[in-house]
């Protein structure tokens, strides 16, 4: 697991990188080498060309076009045309006043916060458990990532099946052990609907948290653990004072990426509740889809998209900062 090491080593090897800069062939000078250097520049750009073209086409263009759309007044009649009449700030005014949009934004915050807390606690607990030595840990460790491999839409379908009102497995368990007297209407009640998509999302996100935190734990030097034991620290103290501070960088990255994934969630909700009942489980993503592709008001949808984009990009500076060493490592060999 080469990459596993790297997870903990965010920023560890900047010094080596700098050293290697000097060894990098491109950094050398000399008459004969100058032409070679230029040739290498050209080759480098050629190697990059497909990626640059792709980024412009699949990211820059859609984002720019989305901004343009958000200032247009679109309707079913303008779907087929590339542009529509200018709308000024009307679409943003809609975002600020429409009650369903407001509740979708609030639900997104609740959903994201709930998911991160649930995924982190369960993922971390599992990571600690599997760091201990016991029979079957290797196979168990690899089975835990199963939920992550299931397509998101399929996860939604599976949970819809499990949380059915009648004949659903969850209700059957609750009835069997006497926790409920009547089947619970998970998917038919606004608050429970939100809870159900939260549970499904925690299920599918735990493997990611587990794997990252687990690999972080593996990178704690044994000497550190032993020293803590010798100092007579109890398990809780060891966790709080030794383990957490050491893997803090990993925790930061994991939570950050978890946030980015969760804010984007779409497939799961579409399959599980489709934003229902009565739009009570719409998130920004699903409601934006509804505005654009079901009501065909692309302008309003695009405006909401921009809200989502800003929300997601809030973490960009943090992300870049956490990856700063990797960024600086512009040439030369790393590890």
């Amino acid at each position: 697991m080469a990459g596993v090491r790297a997870a903990a080593g965010v920023g560890a090897d900047a010094a080596i990188a700098r050293q290697n800069d000097e060894l990098a062939p491109g950094a050398r000078t000399g008459r004969g080498r100058l032409a070679a250097g230029r040739r290498r520049q050209v080759a480098g750009w050629l190697f990059l060309a497909p990626a640059i073209l792709y980024l412009l086409f699949a990211f820059a263009l859609p984002i720019a076009y989305n901004v343009m759309l958000s200032f247009e007044q679109s309707s079913p009649e303008t779907i087929a045309s590339f542009t529509a009449p200018f709308a000024g700030l009307a679409n943003y005014r809609f975002i600020l006043t429409d009650p369903t949009t407001q509740s979708a934004i609030i639900h997104t915050f609740e959903f994201t916060a709930g998911s991160l807390i649930g995924q982190f606690i369960i993922g971390f607990a599992l990571a600690l458990l599997f760091s201990l030595r016991f029979p079957g840990r290797t196979i168990g460790r690899s089975l835990i990532i199963v939920p992550w491999l299931v397509p998101l839409l399929v996860t939604g379908v599976i949970f819809k099946f499990l949380f059915q009102l009648e004949g659903g497995a969850v209700n059957q368990i609750l009835l069997d052990i006497g926790l409920a007297q009547h089947p619970i209407d998970w998917l038919e009640t606004p608050q429970l609907g939100l809870l159900t998509i939260l549970i499904a999302n925690i299920w599918l996100g735990v493997p990611f948290f587990f794997l990252l935190l687990y690999s972080g734990l593996q990178d704690i030097p044994i000497e550190v653990k032993e020293a803590a034991v010798m100092d007579g620290a109890g398990p809780w103290q060891r966790l709080r004072l030794v383990v957490v501070p050491i893997i803090l960088p990993v925790i930061e990255v994991t939570v950050l990426l978890g946030f980015v994934f969760t804010v984007k969630v779409f497939d799961l909700v579409v399959a599980l509740t489709d934003g229902g009942p009565a739009n009570a489980t719409q998130l920004i993503t699903t409601w934006s889809y509804n505005l654009s592709f079901q009501q065909f008001i692309f302008g309003e949808g695009a405006a909401l998209n921009n809200v989502l984009l800003v929300l997601a990009l809030i973490c960009a500076p943090v992300y870049l900062w956490l990856s700063r060493d990797s960024l600086r490592r512009s040439t030369g060999a790393g590890r």
Binding site: A51, L55, F59, I63, K264, F266, S292, A312, S330, T331
Partner: peptide, 28 residues
């Protein structure tokens, strides 16, 4: 492996690109 000036910009762009929600791209 190539000492290009744009590297920092491009890598930053790639990091940010991972954050962009698919629905934003899909609509456009």
């Amino acid at each position: 492996k190539y000492p290009l000036r744009a590297t920092v910009v491009l890598v930053s762009a790639l990091l940010v690109a991972q954050i962009v929600p698919s629905i934003v791209i899909a609509t456009s």
